[in-house]
Design a protein around this nucleic acid. Sequence first.
DNA 1: CGGGTTCTTGACCTACCGGTCACGGCGCTC
DNA 2: GAGCGCCGTGACCGGTAGGTCAAGAACCCG
Lengths: 194, 194
Amino acid sequence: MSRKLTTRGKDRRRQLMTEATRLFAEHGFHPTSVSDIVTSVGVGKGVFYWYFSGKEELLEQLLEASQLDLRRTQHGAIGDEPDPMQRIELGIRASMAWCHDHRDSLTLVQFAATEARFAPVLRAGQEVAVDDVARHLKEAIGSGQAADLDPEVVAYAILGVVQQLARTFVLGRHTPVDEVADAAVAFCMHGLMR
Amino acid sequence: MSRKLTTRGKDRRRQLMTEATRLFAEHGFHPTSVSDIVTSVGVGKGVFYWYFSGKEELLEQLLEASQLDLRRTQHGAIGDEPDPMQRIELGIRASMAWCHDHRDSLTLVQFAATEARFAPVLRAGQEVAVDDVARHLKEAIGSGQAADLDPEVVAYAILGVVQQLARTFVLGRHTPVDEVADAAVAFCMHGLMR
DNA sequence: CGGGTTCTTGACCTACCGGTCACGGCGCTC
DNA sequence: GAGCGCCGTGACCGGTAGGTCAAGAACCCG
């Protein structure tokens, strides 16, 4: 028998993380107390401190986990596509879809960016993602497919476009993801001129 | 004599707002207590509650004030420029400069976006700014200068680019504002292709 | 069954937070 | 200089936060 009736171990850990993500996104990090989290899960307070050393550590883990997940999703979507320009487009679409499926995590990341002590964790993950895009860009510039702009700057710009459109249209207005992704790709590729 | 030795009235109000902005940006909104603010200014706690009805109201006023200021700066920079494309470019540059001069306010805005109860104040201001850009865009599209994309979506995309580049390069790495502004304009105009 | 680990409980502690308030002085005006 | 708002003080209050801990319950293995 591998199925247990009681929830323990890794499962309980995940349960806490999932619930915490939800509550943090809904009410904010600080306004959500540890008591809120454990009550919502239906366990005692000690459980929390058995799995995490504190509220801050929890948030750090949440951030790391979501960044890792986003990266995995991107890689999965890109696969072994040979064309660097196509890789960027696939990355944008995958990111947009991920934002749709993990809206709460997106809010968390945005919050973490406003408190200095979480900046390190955040930057680490962001730089990895940016470096990825920048690599594709360098290749595309090398083969003359892309304009000769600073790849890192452009990578951050793309990130800005995706995040902003995701927040405003996917999360805020429930616009279909594909539509928003199309718009993001179109803008990133050609800008507003024509 | 108009100069007083003691600080009172509007001056004191501004003093509190300035200091609060600094502390909120440095340590976060919730971790900064009202006591921290008044201590830092060097006054008693009652003073705070004389000028503001509470911590939340203060933040709302901070947000409104900074959004108003940003808008004024943009309008000032655009002046009576007749070309809609030029207006957009001037707006981007002015926004970037504003972010440089008001980095703390930028952090505040970003934080406010993560707590549901401040979202209304925030969206109001943001939509105004976006509508401005969208208006210029419509004109540019009408005269065939810009590609026929949804003006509102593009406006939000531009906003995303500016904010992201400002945060990463202007605030985070102290890259000269003009350089970053150049990059933002280049990307927004032509995208990454060429 | 027995004994060691792995979890779970929830009352409890300390600290501090936002907010109040009775009181006290400054600076006008008449 | 009396009187009156405007401004300022800081001890104080109720509530709650993050975090601890001694006491078990559940589980695993020999």
